[in-house]
């Protein structure tokens, strides 16, 4: 822990970063996002199993007023979002001071201790505990027992359903949606200055939480994430109604991989999935 504090303190003192987006623990022991602006602030920075947030979501907010590098504390899953933002030309690698942390899983329910049954879905299929690149690395790497990937099982179950059953399943889920847009706001990849639902001439997506409005919002959100979702599962964590949103985005990620061999957020230079094409893309469905 001292290591992370020391790294950040040094970075702020030596002006390697103008400020550092990290985590702090509040008086109720909740770990939450925090911006350390001075070396003294760095004392408050922390990291633990409870550091669930993907801090890359804050990067888009600062991209236009850069006056020195932005420091950011990232887990390996969060780093994919940073990579993706660089890949999509939203931010430059040179404007960032990346403090990677070795992560050994984060909690699902922040009120409880970390254990096998209290693990985020994304940790159940996490490939890298150590971020692939960084400017500084903190935290010790700890082994942890990976629980079963029950989401993959659910996905396989949905795949086996008939179309009617699937629609019924999703209608029941989307019905819960209250259009608070927490899924959009916590998503590091949702950085549009004006979201499609806010476009009202014409109103492409109904802003009401009707069956129609909820359905088109969720379907278009999932499409805009197709091959762009980096799998931080923040949308599902933020959803107050408990809609399994990552089923959709993860599925689209799997489609992107099976159809095009593409995984977002893994390369700084590779062109994005939708930003490019191949003349040999399949077209058996086109007459």
């Amino acid at each position: 822990m001292n290591e992370l504090k020391q790294i950040c303190k040094d970075a702020l003192t030596e002006k390697k970063a103008r400020f550092i987006i990290g985590y702090k623990e509040d008086k109720n022991k909740r770990v939450k996002p925090f911006i350390a602006k001075t070396p003294e602030d760095a004392e408050k920075l922390t990291f633990s199993h409870h550091a669930v947030n993907n801090l890359a979501v804050y990067l888009s907010r600062f991209k236009n007023n850069i006056d020195g590098k932005i420091g950011i504390v990232v887990k390996s899953c969060d780093l994919k979002a940073v990579t993706a933002l660089i890949q999509e030309n939203q931010i430059k690698r040179d404007d960032l001071f990346i403090i990677g942390v070795n992560c050994s899983g984060v909690v699902l329910d922040v009120a409880k201790e970390f254990n096998k049954d209290n693990t985020q879905i994304k940790c159940k299929y996490c490939q890298a505990k150590t971020p692939p690149y960084y400017d500084a690395l903190a935290e010790e790497s700890k082994e942890f027992e990976m629980p079963d990937d029950d989401q993959a099982e659910l996905m396989a179950k949905i795949d086996k359903m008939t179309a009617e059953e699937r629609l019924e399943f999703w209608n029941a889920e989307f019905e819960k949606c209250i259009k608070c847009y927490a899924c959009r706001q916590v998503c590091p990849m949702c950085y549009c200055e004006k979201c499609i639902v806010e476009k009202s001439e014409p109103q492409w997506i109904d802003s009401s939480s009707t069956s129609r409005g909820n359905f088109s919002w969720n379907i278009i959100r999932a499409f805009h994430q197709a091959g762009r979702c980096i799998g931080c599962h923040e949308c599902e964590r933020a959803c107050p109604m408990g809609i399994p949103l990552t089923l959709l985005t993860r599925k689209m990620g799997m489609v992107a991989f099976s159809e095009f061999g593409y995984r977002h957020g893994t390369s700084l230079t590779e062109p994005t999935l939708i930003g490019t094409y191949s003349t040999s893309d399949k077209e058996d469905f086109i007459k």
Binding site: P33, I35, Y58, C180, Y181, A182, R184, V186, A238, P240
Partner: peptide, 12 residues
């Protein structure tokens, strides 16, 4: 400062 601007708080 850290508010992301969703409406979870208002809607619940």
């Amino acid at each position: 400062e850290m508010c992301l601007g969703c409406a979870q708080c208002a809607f619940v």
